[in-house]
Amino acid sequence: MLYQKEREHLADVVKKMFDRYETNTAGGNVSVRMNDEHIIMTPTLMSQEHHCDLSPYQTLVVDMDENVVEGDGRITREINMHMACYKLNKEIGCVLHGHALNSMVFATMGMDMPNLTEATQKLGEIKCLDFAPATSEELAEKVRSYIESKGQDAVLNAILLNKHGVLITDKNLTKAYDIMGRLEYNAYIAEKAVLFDKLGIQKIDSKGHDYNLEE
């Protein structure tokens, strides 16, 4: 089996995503760049039909022309969003998309997420993109355009997709999934901090700090 170890890792991560409410039965998909020829990727309906409980062989090997090379399943219609990231920046090694519970509050409201925790400061601004329908070329283009606007060095990105979910890019799957966990904690805190601020209980700290941005 091609890329067996990597496909086992991907299957393990997406099961954790579902169990930890980082995606839901409405969707989500994850891909990892193997080399210049192939990515591995979760199949369509991984959540609705399988609850993200996949065998390694159900994670597909896909070429850059979006053909399945190996694996049991069909390609998700959101592959256009993944390929837009990979073709824009050769250093992007993972694209992770989920419907994460706490982050969905801000995505559904069409709000940028306040970046409040030290663990998320390296993300910078957490933007919510303008709405575009799920799986559409319009959505893929909005993602591509936003990442391009950050410059060619922008490998790490955490983006809210309006009414839809979260998109994270990074160098590899381990790093991207680490960012998902950090983002969800920040979203949980930010939701309450915004309420405290509006209720006059405690204003959100807007002072600059000398954060530790090292991993």
Score class of each variant (00 low, 15 high):
26 A>D: 09
31 S>D: 02
5 K>H: 03
34 M>F: 00
169 T>I: 07
116 L>E: 12
184 E>Y: 00
189 I>F: 15
162 N>L: 06
171 K>R: 12
47 S>Y: 01
142 K>Q: 13
13 V>H: 02
111 M>V: 05
129 L>E: 13
39 I>R: 01
108 T>Q: 15
208 G>C: 06
76 T>Y: 03
213 L>N: 09
180 M>F: 07
209 H>C: 12
115 N>L: 10
36 D>I: 01
117 T>K: 15
165 G>M: 07
178 D>A: 12
99 H>P: 10
143 V>N: 04
213 L>Q: 02
117 T>Y: 11
122 K>A: 12
165 G>H: 04
208 G>H: 06
110 G>W: 08
13 V>I: 15
195 L>T: 09
141 E>Y: 03
28 G>N: 06
103 S>C: 15
88 L>S: 05
89 N>A: 03
3 Y>S: 08
73 G>D: 05
172 N>G: 10
85 C>W: 00
163 K>T: 15
119 A>I: 13
205 D>K: 08
5 K>E: 13
65 D>V: 00
7 R>A: 07
26 A>V: 04
210 D>S: 13
67 N>C: 05
138 E>Q: 11
115 N>S: 12
75 I>E: 00
12 D>V: 10
23 T>P: 14
172 N>I: 02
152 Q>S: 14
32 V>Y: 04
184 E>P: 05
93 G>E: 05
214 E>F: 02
133 P>W: 06
36 D>G: 07
18 F>K: 01
